[in-house]
Each structure stands twice: as C-alpha cells, then as structure tokens.
Design a protein around this nucleic acid. Structure first.
Lengths: 248, 248
DNA sequence: ACCCTGGCAAGAGCGGTGCTCGCGTTTGTG
DNA sequence: CACAAACGCGAGCACCGCTCTTGCCAGGGT
C-alpha cells in the first residue's frame, strides 16, 4: 500500500516538504537566481551538505519548485473556471480565471518570478515542466473555444494580407495547433478546422496579455501609472473578452 | 569645448565605456542577478578593486546599465516611428515600432532581462530610471492618439458596468493620465478629455501585450507553440491595431 | 539475536562573490 | 617644480555553491 510506511520514509517525506517550503519562502526574498541551498539548510536547521541527501543539486530543487508552482497555478485557473456554475457564461468564466491567476501570482511573487521571470542562468528546465506550464493557457483555449462554439465571434478578423502582405504565414503557430489537437482540447475540432487557428491565436494573445499585466505589476513597471492593479486586471480581462467577441 | 581634454579624463571615459560594454556582454551570458563585478574586472584586465574607481558599487553599475539600455530601446522605438514618412499611416508606424522594439530586445536579450525580467534581489532602481523607461509607451500613446485624432475608433468600447459592475473605478489609471498630461503627450488633450483615458488605456494594454510577447519569446515560453516569433509579433501587432481601431 | 548494509549529519576544503583598506605610482595643476 | 588628486594593485573579510570524507545509527536479512 502506502510506500511510506516506515518511520524513515515518513521522516524523509516530512523533511522534503520542509525543504520545499523553505525554498519557496526564500524565492520571494532572494529571487530564484540567488536561491541559496545553504540558506535553505539554515532555515530547516540542517547542515548544508545534508540537504543534498534530499535533492542531488540546486537544479533539482529548482525543478521541483518549478513543477510544484506550475501545478498550483494551473489548478487555481482550472478550479476558478470550473467554479462558474453557468458554463455558457463565458465572460464570467473568463474573468474568474483571470482573477484567480493574478491572485495566485500576487500571493506567490517569488514563485511567479521563477516561472515567468528571467530564466535562471545555467539552468534549463527539463521536459517534465512543459506540461504543467501549459495548464493555464489550456483553460483559456477551452473558454474561447466554448464561446466561439456558442456562436460568438471576434469583432475583427484580420484577413491575410489586409495590410500590404504583413500577415503571418500559416505555419506560425502550427506547433500550438498540433499541441491543442494532441491534447484533445476543443473536442470535435480538427487541426484543419478553420475555427481552431482563430481560437488558439486569440487565446494565446490573451494569455500573453494576462501575464504581461501581472509581470508589469509584480516587477514594478506600473508604479506611478496604475493606481489599482486589481481593478486594472479586471478591465483588461473584460476588454480582451470584448475584443475576442466572447463577452456576453 | 570637450570637457575631456586631458589624457587622464580621456582614459577614464574609454575605460568606463569598456567596463559598461563588458558588463552588458556578461548580462547575456550570466544574467542580471549574477552580474559579477569581479568578472567584468577580469574581462577588462583589471583588478576587481580598480573597478570601484569607476563605479562605487555593483548597484551603481546596474543603474548605469539600466538607464543606458532603456535609452537605447526608447530611441529605437522613436526612430522607428519617426522613420515612417506618411505620418497619417498609423498602422505602418505601429508595426514599425513593434518590430523595432522586438528587434532591439532580441539583439540584446541580456539587457532585456535586466529591464523587464525578475528584479535583481536587493536592488531598487532609482528614480532616474523611470523617465527613460517610459519612452516606448509614450511612442505608442502618441500613435494611438494620432489615430484617434484622425477619426479612428475602437470597435468596442466597454461601457462601465456592462457586465454586472465589474468595470474599473475611474481612478484606476489616473496616475498614467496625469503622467501623459504632465509630459505634454497628446497636445491639446486635457486630463478631463474623455478621449484621453481611452487612448492611454488602449496604448498601455498594447504596450503590455508587446512586452508579454517578447518576454515569452526570450524567456522560452513559446518553445513548442510558436514556430516563427517574428511573424507572430507582426500578427499580434496587426490584430492589436485592428482591435484598437487604428488600422487603416 | 546478531551483524552489516545503507541512509544520514557533520565538517573541511575549493573556488567564487561584493567590498574595504593601505600601498606605491602616475598625472594634472597651482 | 612641488603638491595633491586620481589611479592600479594586492591582501583581506565574510559570504556563497558545491564536493568529498568521515563517522553515527537504525533496519532488515540470516
């Protein structure tokens, strides 16, 4: 049954948890790049070398933090969307998701910096992190898809080459389309479906704007310009929904 | 009337330049947070303590890099906008500005990380940096303002409280409006002008999206989803212009 | 009930960091 | 010409991530 039956395994689990919590606390104060394994060791009252029994390197600890944080954020987005009873009210689902994502990021600025800030030099995130990292945008794609499936349409659909041949070649976001199809998002829609690219492009743009807003807020680019970040995000969410055409 | 007549002052200027260049080169490889004064000292073949004759601290060096980079980026944006001969072709000015900003950021990923990535822990940017930092968004505000002044209008103007009282209170971006008025952007428009808030709000949103796209590209959040970042930015720029209503 | 294997903490050591201080030298100026 | 300011150097302090070796002690096989 439970693989953690012995006292030894139980203690190991508890200490691992303690190390992760201390490391996440350190993220907020020192930043991801300066995450100090020694500082974490002091926090949990162990000698620095002892921590290496639990995480073979600082990079391994970073990876664990990365996956755990991406999962928390993704869960927050999914829970927020699922919490709207009226599934046809895409605007409410949209706003709830935006608010939940911002709320998590504001509550965990250190983790946000790790996820969406400057990459830690010398550290490359392993493949295990890309799936948790896409959970938020998947929620957005689903909401936009539901809205479009219900008949909503963007106000403006830029036609290819509308302005002197500057439109993107069709292959620009092809990998994203394959990803969406491969994950079974937007069931019934095939990669060749002309609706799919528009849905994905709009959702990816909104995803970018969402994290741009949060990034500017948390990284201090709004000081002196945005007085109320929370209200500003609401407004951005609603304007995006209107531009997307999914606003009720 | 060069103030650097003596050989000593000339040498000081040259060495200062050399230090700054080495530091900026290090930004791309090691990241801003790990910028090592000793490492740049080795690059310029000086003893670490000698560098302190030119920059009193690592933070001072960081500030110099910040201001220099913000100014370069701002100049790139201004030059790109000014380079469009037909001033009434706001779409061309818009696209040129977007492309120039991305081009600079892609060419200087280290500096971009310093400007828009995770803040360096323990370092707070002084006031001198906020004016250079706003040069890009000022260009965007001007273009949107020109477009609206010429009669263009957003397709959708969300009316306050259109969706169950979620609209932002009017004071949300009040500081930004004061800033625009104080800098004499959009001449003729007063803070009470109902056109001004819409212009600024749209420009700030576009500014956020622009840096969100670049941030995702440079920080590795597009791997596996966006095949052609350059084409993607073009598309985003044009879609934003269309949503803004300034597209020709 | 024994003993031995393996998880664990401790500590020394290596090379790196920001920064300070005292030294001798070079350079511009009164 | 002599004095003072600016300059480069090297040692040194306290910290960092990480490696390696040493010794302790609990668990499980016989």
């Amino acid at each position: 049954m439970s693989p953690a039956r012995t006292a030894r395994a139980l203690a190991r689990e508890a200490i691992t948890r303690e190390i992760l919590d201390s490391a996440r606390a350190r993220l907020s104060t020192d930043g991801a790049a300066a995450l100090s394994l020694r500082a974490v060791a002091r926090d949990v009252e162990m000698v620095s070398s002892a921590v290496y029994r639990y995480f073979p390197s600082r990079d391994a600890l970073l990876t664990a933090l990365l996956i755990e944080s991406y999962d928390e954020l993704g869960t927050a987005a999914e829970v927020a969307d699922a919490g709207v009873a009226d599934r046809s009210d895409v605007t409410a689902r949209w706003l709830a998701t935006f608010r939940a994502v911002r709320a998590w990021c504001v509550a965990h600025p250190g983790e946000f910096g790790l996820l969406y800030g400057t990459p830690v030099p010398g550290y490359a995130a392993p493949r295990d992190t890309v799936d948790p990292a896409t959970r938020v945008v998947r929620v957005l794609i689903r909401i936009v898809g539901d809205g479009y499936a219900a008949g909503a349409r963007p106000q403006v659909i830029p036609s290819a080459g509308a302005t002197s041949g500057v439109a993107s070649p069709p292959g620009t976001i092809a990998p994203a389309l394959d990803f969406v199809a491969g994950h079974g998002l937007m069931e019934g829609a095939e990669p060749s479906d002309p609706e799919l690219p528009e849905t994905v492009r709009r959702a990816v743009m909104a995803w970018t704007e969402l994290f741009g807003v949060i990034s500017f807020e948390l990284f201090g680019h709004q000081v002196g310009s945005i007085a109320d970040p929370e209200a500003w995000l609401d407004e951005v969410a609603l304007r995006l929904a209107a531009d997307l055409g999914i606003r009720a």
